[in-house]
Amino acid sequence: MNKLVIALLLAAAPMFTQAQNFEKYENMKEVDAMVMTSKMFKMLAKVDLSENDPESQQYMKLIENLERIQIYKSSNPKVMSQMSSDVKSYLAKGSLEELMRVNDDGKNIKFYSLPGKNDNYVSELFMFLEGTEGSEPMNIILSITGQIDLSQLSKLTADLKVPGAEELKKANKKS
């Protein structure tokens, strides 16, 4: 039994260590970072909203099933290069499926997901944006984990003012 547990932990270790690659950006002064944890979502879920408002109730249902949101943005060329390299390594692990690619207005945006409990849910939504904001280059890494209802996701990303949220909303309407 102990050998089985050790083997499972060793097999899962690359998934955990890879996720930590992005956390290194949190403390870099060249990176704007936002990380929300499940504790924050649980606090938000306790906010007393009108029970008569179905949209608010759906929103609360979405956020109470989230585990973590990480957003890292940088315009520093060295950091941008490192971000691109880390994303390439993360995607090479092969567990994420490509959802869509958008090349629009100087932005190259790629969305990936990890399947969830059924076709309407994903356990991770991952986005990588390479582009410009005005005349300034930028890279953005977005990772949302938990049991994510795809029909509600575009609302959350729009509320967080995440670049690429509009493209995600358009893709959701096509589904």
Rank of each mutant, 00 (worst) to 15 (best):
E98G: 09
L91D: 02
E136W: 00
K24P: 02
L153N: 05
K24S: 10
M138Y: 13
G131D: 08
L66N: 04
L160M: 14
I71Y: 06
Q147K: 04
R101M: 12
F128I: 13
L150T: 04
G131T: 08
Y72L: 00
N108V: 03
L8K: 10
N27C: 05
Q18S: 15
I141K: 02
D104V: 04
L168T: 07
N65H: 05
E23W: 06
P163S: 12
K93H: 08
T37S: 11
D53F: 07
G106E: 15
K110Y: 01
E98T: 11
E130D: 13
N120D: 14
P115M: 01
P115W: 01
K24F: 06
L142V: 14
Q58I: 05
M28V: 10
K170T: 15
K161H: 14
E166G: 04
D32C: 07
P163D: 11
E130Q: 11
M40Y: 12
V162Y: 06
A158P: 02
S123F: 05
N120C: 07
Q58S: 06
K3Y: 05
E133F: 03
E98K: 14
A7M: 05
A171I: 00
I144R: 01
P137Y: 02
S143F: 02
Y25A: 00
F126W: 04
N103E: 15
M36Y: 10
S135R: 08
A11K: 15
A13F: 09
G116S: 06
S151N: 13
R68K: 14
S95T: 15
K3W: 04
S113A: 10
K46E: 14
E26V: 13
F22G: 01
Q18A: 15
L10I: 13
L156F: 12
K161T: 13
E136S: 08
V47W: 08
M1P: 02
A165L: 02
M15L: 13
L156D: 12
A158Y: 03
L91W: 02
N103G: 01
M36F: 12
Y121A: 04
G134L: 04
A7N: 09
E55A: 08
Q152H: 00
L62A: 01
A13D: 06
K39P: 06
S56W: 11
G134D: 07
L99F: 03
K42M: 10
G106H: 11
L10E: 15
A19K: 11
E97T: 11
K161W: 05
L44V: 13
K110I: 10
K3A: 15
Q58C: 02
L96V: 09
E51M: 10
Y25V: 03
Q58A: 05
P115K: 05
Y121Q: 04
A13L: 14
V162F: 06
G106D: 13
L99T: 12
G134C: 01
D53T: 11
G146T: 09
D104L: 07
L156M: 10
K117C: 06
K169W: 00
R68C: 06
T157D: 05
E136K: 12
A171Y: 12
E133V: 12
A171T: 03
E124S: 10
A11D: 13
L66F: 07
V35T: 10
N27W: 08
N172S: 11
I6A: 05
A7Q: 10
Q18W: 08
Q57C: 07
N21E: 11
L8M: 09
V162M: 11
N52H: 09
L168K: 06
D105A: 04
D159N: 13
K93D: 05
I141S: 02
Q82F: 00
S95L: 07
I144L: 08
Q82A: 06
S38Y: 08
D159C: 07
